[in-house]
Simulated assay, not measured.
Amino acid sequence: MERNLTLIALFAALIAGLGLIPKFTLAFGVPITAQTLGVMLCGTVLGAKRGALAVLLFIALVALGLPLLAGGRGGLGVFASPTVGFLVGWPFAAFVTGLIVERWQGRLALVASVASVVGGIVVLYVFGVVGMSITLGKTIPEAALLVTAFIPGDVLKAVLAGLITSGLARSRPSSVLSRG
């Protein structure tokens, strides 16, 4: 149990660390950051439950006011911004990503990449589009059109998550809990 808590905290810190990579904010207020790679890795490495818990810990720290989001954002105000759907969707994205890696056997790099696309892009975009629709006063199709700018970068992050997870499994097989 102590190992699980340590890994959950470590991966919450990983998401925070990835927020230090400079963000690029699109015209409608949603930034492109490396933090979604951390969310994908939470699922591919830790598995569904532990991955979602790591993301929930991170979001709780943000809600408490710690400036952990890209660009040093934090506090309850971020939950009233166009990014709210993405933030709410992060634990679900990590959970779905982890669940797919846990259940689907095969080459880990491919499985983790596909799981990251399904959980870290498809599931996350559902939440993100709804959140943007509400906060920006746009229809669902209009909000969906806005997120198309994220697709190439997120696909790259999904492939990276698959390669990182596979490399970690080769070097330290016991550290990839999603396959344990």
Results as ranks from 00 to 15, higher is better:
Asn4Pro: 01
Leu7Met: 15
Leu10Tyr: 03
Ala12Lys: 11
Ala13His: 03
Ala13Met: 10
Ala16Val: 00
Leu18Gly: 06
Leu18Phe: 14
Leu18Val: 10
Gly19Trp: 05
Lys23Arg: 11
Lys23Glu: 10
Thr25Leu: 00
Thr25Lys: 00
Thr25Val: 13
Leu26Ile: 01
Gly29Arg: 08
Gly29Met: 10
Val30Lys: 06
Thr33Ser: 15
Thr36Met: 02
Val39Arg: 04
Val39Phe: 00
Gly43Ala: 11
Val45Gly: 04
Val45Arg: 01
Gly47Glu: 04
Arg50Met: 09
Arg50Tyr: 10
Leu53Tyr: 15
Ala54Val: 05
Val55Asp: 00
Leu56Phe: 12
Phe58His: 08
Phe58Asn: 14
Ile59Pro: 07
Ile59Ala: 13
Ala60Asp: 03
Ala60Thr: 10
Leu61His: 09
Leu61Asn: 14
Val62Tyr: 03
Val62Phe: 10
Leu69Gly: 14
Arg73Gly: 15
Gly75Ile: 14
Gly75Cys: 11
Leu76Thr: 15
Val78Gly: 13
Val78Met: 06
Phe79Lys: 05
Gly85Phe: 05
Leu87Cys: 07
Val88Phe: 09
Gly89Phe: 13
Phe95Gln: 01
Phe95Trp: 15
Thr97Cys: 13
Trp104Asn: 05
Trp104Gly: 10
Gly106Ser: 06
Arg107Cys: 00
Arg107Ser: 12
Leu108Gln: 10
Ala109Met: 04
Leu110Ser: 14
Ser116Ile: 09
Val118Asn: 00
Val118Glu: 00
Gly120Val: 06
Ile121Pro: 07
Phe127Trp: 13
Phe127Thr: 09
Gly128Glu: 12
Val129Leu: 03
Ser133Met: 07
Thr135Ile: 07
Thr139Pro: 12
Ala143Ser: 12
Ala144Gln: 01
Leu145Gln: 07
Leu146Phe: 15
Phe150His: 00
Lys157Trp: 05
Val159Glu: 11
Ala161Lys: 02
Thr165Arg: 02
Ala169Gly: 05
Ser175Tyr: 14
Val176Lys: 06
Ser178Lys: 01
Ser178Gly: 13
Arg179Leu: 11
Gly180Asn: 08
